[in-house]
């Protein structure tokens, strides 16, 4: 099978001997994460971190220009690592993405705890280029590396009672010092209906630009739901729970009039304090119109047939 590697200068390319063996890679990833603790070169520049073996590449952003490494990893909402957009990159050194386990529980045949490295062995990794629309009306285009959430859901065999899936971020004030301030009820929880979770576009991401996910982007594993506002994408996940009831999700708990459970990108439903009709793509001057379901309406609109998208925002 052809292995895709993103455009790298020859000098930056990972030696072949390394990318042939995934386990070694992942250890290298841990080393890379540790080295982030050390004072490194000036912020900015090209992709950094260990490479990931990518089995195939799918562009699902209509060929739009990908945002730069700097834009993707230097402008983040990850309040557990600081409230300003530049904070998470600066503070990501406290997050240790290895060793890491993910608890899978609730309405599944066999609840279990999976090491993230085993999780990576379960499925071939693919690159998916998605648009990402933040609820704050800015957007980027991200070449994620990950695997379909649907593959994981099928593998862990939810029971017939499972109607929702929730994703919980690590709760650890040492690794995520922002949790010392109760600006949100920690830990961060997000959730999907099970039919959303099994939609082929829903992704569990472990990398970006062919490299292991940097801490500020939610290492080692995060949710990516490209037709929803970015806050649905829970970062640094330690628990995936299948439930019969709709999970209580963080922003919806915090400000239910501003952030709905669905949070589908919708230019016609404004945030109470700003319009969602347009967005600023980072790096662009003029705002561009926001697309229904962030441009993925053809694939996902049928999930919401008969649902009032204004009331269920």
């Amino acid at each position: 099978m052809a292995r895709y590697r993103p455009d790298l200068r020859e000098s930056e390319a990972t030696p072949e001997a390394l990318w042939l063996r995934r386990r070694d890679f992942l250890r290298l990833g841990a080393a890379g994460a540790l080295s982030a603790l050390l004072p490194g070169p000036a912020l900015g520049g090209g992709p950094e971190g260990a490479g990931l073996p990518v089995a195939r590449r799918v562009d699902l952003a209509g060929g739009e220009k990908q945002s730069t490494w700097d834009q993707i990893t230097g402008y983040n909402n990850f309040y557990e690592l600081g409230l300003d957009k530049e904070d998470p990159r600066r503070n990501a050194g406290t997050l240790r993405p290895r060793p890491w386990t993910v608890r899978i529980e609730g309405e599944v045949k066999q609840p279990r705890t999976v090491d993230v490295d085993d999780l990576l062995e379960w499925f071939p990794l693919e690159e998916r280029v998605y648009r990402m629309r933040c609820v704050e009306a800015w957007s980027i285009v991200v070449p994620w590396v990950g695997f379909p959430l649907a593959d994981l859901v099928r593998r862990v065999e939810p029971t017939s009672r499972a109607r929702y899936v929730s994703f919980t971020t690590l709760l650890d004030e040492k690794q995520l010092p922002g949790q010392r301030r109760a600006v949100l009820p920690w830990p961060y929880v997000e959730g999907l209906r099970i039919d959303e979770a099994t939609h082929p576009l829903a992704l569990l991401a472990v990398g970006v630009y062919g490299r292991v996910l940097p801490g500020q982007n939610g290492a080692p594993v995060r949710l990516v739901v490209p037709w929803k506002y970015g806050f649905k994408g829970a970062k640094s996940i330690v628990k995936i729970a299948f439930t019969a009831e709709q999970p209580r999700t963080t922003w919806n708990l915090m400000a239910p009039q501003e952030y709905g459970f669905y949070a589908n990108v919708n230019p016609k439903v404004d945030h109470p304090r700003w319009s969602q009709a347009k967005e600023r793509r980072l790096g662009e001057f003029l705002k561009r119109p926001t697309l229904p379901f962030n441009g993925y309406a053809d694939q996902v609109a049928s999930l919401y047939t008969g649902l009032d998208l204004v009331r269920n925002f």
Partner: peptide, 11 residues
Amino acid sequence: ATGGLGQNPIA
């Protein structure tokens, strides 16, 4: 002028 306003300079 020198790119010191971060990734979303207008904001």
